[in-house]
């Protein structure tokens, strides 16, 4: 009932969920073996080489900084892509008509089916 056959394999969400829950319990058990000398309150404060802790709002990593490395290493690709996305309506129509023409040529040149 829950098993999705995909010809080559199968997918059963119930088995997955059970496995996931078992894993969670195992992790919890492992965690409970942890350090018992932990002191609440004192040890949760960040230690920044003795500097005072910055404001909460400044600690948050803003979206623009995430995956900076990824976009930086693919700079050329992103530059080309941004250049293509001009936002100019003429270019939109240009792309559409261009692809239309390519598809028309490919379909017309290729022969019939069965």
């Amino acid at each position: 009932m829950f098993t999705l056959e995909t010809n080559t394999g199968f997918w059963n969400p119930i088995i997955w969920i059970i496995a996931f829950l078992v894993l969670c319990i195992v992790i919890y058990v492992l965690r409970s073996f942890g350090e018992s000398s932990y002191k609440k309150g004192e040890q949760i404060k960040p230690f920044l080489s003795g500097n005072p802790e910055p404001e909460k709002g400044d600690v948050h990593i803003r979206a623009g900084n995430i995956y900076w490395g990824f976009t930086e290493s693919l700079k050329e690709y992103y530059k080309t892509m941004t250049n293509i996305h001009t936002g100019d309506i003429n270019d939109y129509v240009y792309w559409f008509i261009g692809i239309l023409a390519i598809i028309l040529v490919v379909v017309s040149v290729s022969g019939g089916g069965l």
Binding site: T82, H85, T86, G87, D88, N90
Partner: peptide, 10 residues
């Protein structure tokens, strides 16, 4: 002008 009226891009 279509070239100027394009604030949405990228």
């Amino acid at each position: 002008d279509a070239r100027k009226a394009r604030r949405l891009k990228g």
